[in-house]
């Protein structure tokens, strides 16, 4: 089997490595496919559905982050339908919790906010849920604000896969899903948290933040996570 394959992305012929996902292949060529749950270096989960693309000959939409490239694959990353669906998904996220961007620690540095701007979401047509979502301020250094959580599980994965602590997981189901620390403990009471802060740095929104950072101050350094994973990979 050839190591390299040729695929078409939006009509353009590109080369990709076998084993790469569509998202990796596209990103390597500088192409943009929106995503929120994906973070390079962590196991892709295909949960946010923003990276859905159309693949010729396949009836359903496929997540670019988990679908491996195949030789001769023709991928469409932009279409009227995909644009509409992506906007709707973003709107659903905004409607789900209380994203008060204006006063958020991650204002102007938030991936959700940036995607909304980029994809032209100017309002949320769905009624807001305005749920009661709490905060966990117990940790000395960090804060969990459920109001801003989009359940992308990057923190869950980075903690389990990179740090090896598995402090975070998702409890409940459906609309009642929420991030929990271990078996629903206060963060400060965690027995496995190493205080490494990788979860904070991988979080795309203001859900996980450093304590004491005021509005607009929380800039996440997701690329450090990716670099760390790559460095580990080299070591291994």
């Amino acid at each position: 089997m050839p190591d390299r394959v040729s695929i078409r992305i939006d009509g353009e012929l590109l080369h990709a490595r076998l084993g790469q996902t569509i998202l990796e292949a596209a990103t390597a060529q500088g192409r943009f496919i929106p995503s929120l749950c994906h973070l390079k270096g962590l196991t892709p989960v295909g949960a946010c559905r923003l990276c859905l693309v159309e693949v010729a000959g396949i009836g359903r939409l496929l997540p670019a982050c988990t679908t491996p490239v195949q030789d001769g694959m023709a991928v469409t990353t932009r279409s009227d339908r995909l644009d509409r669906y992506r906007r709707m998904i973003l709107e659903l996220l905004f409607a789900e919790r209380n994203h008060v961007c204006a006063v958020c620690v991650s204002n102007n540095h938030c991936e959700l906010q940036a995607l909304a701007r980029r994809l032209g979401v100017t309002h949320v047509r769905f009624p807001y849920s305005f749920p009661k979502a709490g905060t966990d301020l117990s940790h000395r250094q960090f804060v969990l604000d459920q109001n801003r959580c989009i359940l992308c599980t990057r923190c869950v994965r980075v903690c389990a896969e990179v740090e090896g602590a598995h402090v975070w997981d998702v409890a409940g189901r459906g609309i009642g899903s929420r991030l929990v620390c271990e078996l629903n403990r206060a963060w400060a009471d965690s027995r496995s948290c190493t205080g490494c802060g990788k979860c904070v740095q991988s979080c795309p929104t203001g859900a996980l933040a450093m304590k004491g950072f005021a509005a607009e101050e929380m800039v996440k350094r997701t690329e450090t996570i990716t670099r760390l994973v790559e460095a580990k990979g080299v070591r291994a």
Binding site: V103, T135, A215
Partner: peptide
Amino acid sequence: EGRPFYEMPAITAR
């Protein structure tokens, strides 16, 4: 109530 105190400047500015 319940918000971290250091968010107060941004919130009360509104």
